[in-house]
Amino acid sequence: MSILESGKKIVETLTGWQRPSGCDMDSLIRARKANTFRFKDDGAIPNHPHWPLVVYRGAVKLPVDVDPAAILEDLFERNGWGSSWRNGIFDYVDYHSRIHEVLGIARGSAKVQFVGKRGRTIAVKAGDVAILPAGTGHQCLHASNDFLVVGAYPPDGTYDECTGEEEHARTVETIPKAVKPRKDPVYGPNGPLAGIWKASR
């Protein structure tokens, strides 16, 4: 997280400045179709054997008078996805083998390659949200200068960072054990995620 974003987050947390109120949050959420993308193990990046990447396009309204990162942080926290951070997406492939991850685009746009070197490139922009099941490789190929992401994690699981073949044998065992989240990070307990991941198992 940049020094500027770290400072903003501290000030906002202490004062409430530029943070959305609880009653405003529902009006900032748009009903959106869940776009799903399935990826196979490519020999280096395992991806998830059963559950797809889920992308909601333009799911969150980001009004100019509120910090967009604060909106995403509060939304994810409300739905049980915490330990949030503000930053970009690494320019090398990484994934998590013991926990799922949500990425909300707060500002700007980028092209992100999912899976690994033989993966799929998806363009993302402010207001989009991607939910990555454990094992999903991701790498930023290009981003606008103002690109900012808020990431968060469900309460069950352990954060780890994996980058390639050396972890492959171990992570193919741990990835399927990552617990399914109780709530969709955008739409809550009745959101599409539970049905999509359940049906895919």
Rank of each mutant, 00 (worst) to 15 (best):
D26Q: 12
P176E: 14
E173K: 15
Q18P: 04
E5M: 06
W17K: 07
L62T: 05
H96G: 09
L53E: 00
Y92S: 14
S109L: 02
H142P: 00
F114L: 08
C140K: 09
A194Y: 07
L28P: 04
S2G: 01
A194L: 12
D42P: 05
L193E: 04
R86I: 01
A34H: 09
W51V: 02
R120D: 10
T174I: 06
W51T: 03
I99W: 08
N79W: 10
P181I: 08
D74W: 04
A199F: 01
A70M: 07
Y92Q: 13
P154I: 06
Y56H: 07
V102Q: 07
S21I: 05
D24C: 00
K33E: 15
P52C: 02
W81Q: 05
G88I: 10
K9D: 00
R86H: 03
D42V: 13
P49Y: 04
Q139K: 15
G88A: 12
A44S: 12
K117E: 15
P189W: 07
H96A: 09
N145W: 00
G43K: 08
G104W: 08
P133L: 10
H48V: 06
Y95P: 04
S84M: 06
K117I: 13
A134L: 05
K33T: 14
K180Q: 06
G43F: 06
G127P: 04
V102F: 03
K198R: 09
W51H: 07
K180I: 10
N145V: 02
F76P: 03
R78F: 07
A169N: 14
G164S: 10
I131Y: 03
A44P: 00
H142Y: 00
Q113I: 05
Q18F: 09
R30Y: 15
R170M: 13
T36P: 05
